[in-house]
Design a protein around this nucleic acid. Structure first.
Lengths: 119, 119
DNA sequence: CTCATACTTAGGCACGTACTTAACTATTCC
DNA sequence: GGAATAGTTAAGTACGTGCCTAAGTATGAG
């Protein structure tokens, strides 16, 4: 799991066309033409989006005859979701600590753990 | 919730610097200088990343005196996480259907619901 | 063999992104 | 008031992204 994997995964998901390709592929495998049909753009453009999705590991594909069949690889989605979940958890822990602080010390506004411009 | 919000949110998260700013901000508010200190880049560069995070609604900030204090706005993280969760759910439903299919019709390989090249 | 299908490659263009340095504005401290 | 602090604006550069058209390759059908 290389360090810049999340860069590439989020980058891949940052495009409506590629998200719609993912939305299609979670329902089952599809050929390149299947993916291209609803997308008002040229086939080479679809191929490029597909390459982005493959480069970050979200999609895999293999060729059989003249048809390339694509299927999703859900591991990358899980990694992205987990990063977001970790941030939201951390944020909620912060709210809890704030709650504790307000509950425990309603009249002793402690100060001294904060940022002091160390420069 | 405009249609291209997810574009901007995923785009914002597709950068290690901005993710590290989010990781900092989920632990509590911070000034621009606080955000910049661990980031080996100029202050204007940090400002630009901050603007990206604000433009997609992940962060808000306000100025008091000469200090701008930034804090996270978790709504966007939730929206991104939910899109991913929906795809993963859809994918898992597909696995379930496949399991049902294999369990119900182990010797009658039904065909006819699949993609037929309609072109 | 011949033709249509299903990609694939190459090249090019417009625009976007991630920085930089230099110069400027507002606040706070002495 | 004058200097340090915190942030902001402007302009420029290098590289990345998302499309296109045109021309190619490989496979399947007749």
């Amino acid at each position: 799991m290389p360090k810049y994997e999340l860069d590439r995964i989020f980058q891949a998901l940052a495009d409506e066309t590629r998200r719609s390709m993912v939305e299609r592929l979670v329902r089952g495998p599809a050929s390149v033409s299947d993916l291209a049909r609803p997308l008002e753009m040229s086939l080479p453009a679809v191929m490029q989006h597909l390459q982005v999705l493959e480069a970050c590991g979200l999609v895999r594909s293999g060729k059989s005859g003249r048809v390339r069949t694509c299927h999703i690889q859900p591991e990358g989605l899980r990694a992205a979701q987990e990063w977001i979940a970790a941030q939201r958890t951390s944020w909620e822990r912060g709210l809890d600590r704030l709650g504790d602080y307000l509950a425990e010390e309603p009249q002793a506004p402690d100060q001294g753990l904060e940022k002091r411009s160390t420069s």
